[in-house]
Design a protein around this nucleic acid. Structure first.
Lengths: 157, 157
DNA sequence: TTTTCTATTGACCATCACTGACTTTGTGAC
DNA sequence: GTCACAAAGTCAGTGATGGTCAATAGAAAA
């Protein structure tokens, strides 16, 4: 039932659909004015509708000349990333499981060899154990974030 | 976007890019006149955009005949990683400093664009704050580990 | 009806850009 | 040396953004 949040979502997706670059840049205050609502309503829409799981990334900057940048992620045909991300939500990832996953993704050419080495190196227990109370949760969280960013339309492998 | 500070930054980088010697010399007052702004705005741009992490060095002189000298620092081939680790990373690394450093290393072609995005994404406060007691220590640790691995001979950019 | 989930707002916070008043330092004339 | 002038430096204050969170309202489900 077209409530405000739904209408803002629809509007943003329409504008995003027309953007050739795969992203749009706009101001929170402008949007809030356009829809005559509280600025924080925009944050609500962004955090509930434009998440990585749904295929979007949001970046922003505060201060004078601040902005919101909404990026549409290139979705792989099989929705493989989405499934992976869903699996990783709230989940834990051991060093072994992480290594297996990363190697698999390297074979599938989702990651380059360098990227695989990079990720594995920082996921090592040797690095995390002393500093992080629950390394397994951090790995899952980071892995999800990496997957989301690797689907970005504005970069190429 | 495109606020004053960004435009001044862009202008200085353009001029610097055309300078054969790797540095430029100019006057603060002249710049301020050119952009019709307060002279202190120039200092703002210099201290926020032309930092060591981003690979710049700024020298100046007051009084009659005063000037600003902006130097683009290269990475010396000998022991560049060691120097970076020692001087720029240290034991703690904030998100801002990390971003500056990563972007600089991307410009120096030590990281690809994808690698830079990958690292920046997992270094975000948004990711680390909830899970890690001292994100700054973890970033420093990870950044050093990444640099050590990216310098391996068996992988190439 | 009662409960639970979703939407909306407003008060307060954090960050970034920019300015102006005041300070410090270098140069040159005397 | 001293003075006047001509740079650049510093810093606190202001305004323009976006962010967060708790409280409330509304809608849907039980």
């Amino acid at each position: 039932m077209s409530n405000l949040a739904d209408r803002i979502e629809e509007y943003l997706k329409k504008v995003l659909g027309q953007a050739e670059e795969g992203y749009i840049i706009l101001q929170r205050g402008f949007l809030a004015d356009t829809f005559s609502c509280a600025p924080s309503q925009i944050n609500y829409v962004l955090t509930t509708r434009f998440t990585a799981e749904r295929g979007y990334l949001v970046e922003s900057r505060r201060g004078g000349g601040g902005y919101l940048r909404i990026v549409r992620l290139g979705l792989d045909p099989e929705g493989k990333f989405q499934r992976l991300m869903a699996e990783l939500i709230g989940d834990e990832l051991s060093q072994d499981r992480a290594n297996n996953l990363i190697e698999r993704l390297e074979e599938e050419e989702i990651f380059t060899k360098r990227e695989a080495i990079l990720i594995k190196s920082i996921f090592a227990d040797r690095i995390l154990d002393e500093i992080v109370p629950s390394p397994e949760i951090l790995r899952a969280r980071m892995m999800k974030e990496i997957l989301a960013n690797m689907c970005r339309d504005d970069i190429n492998i």
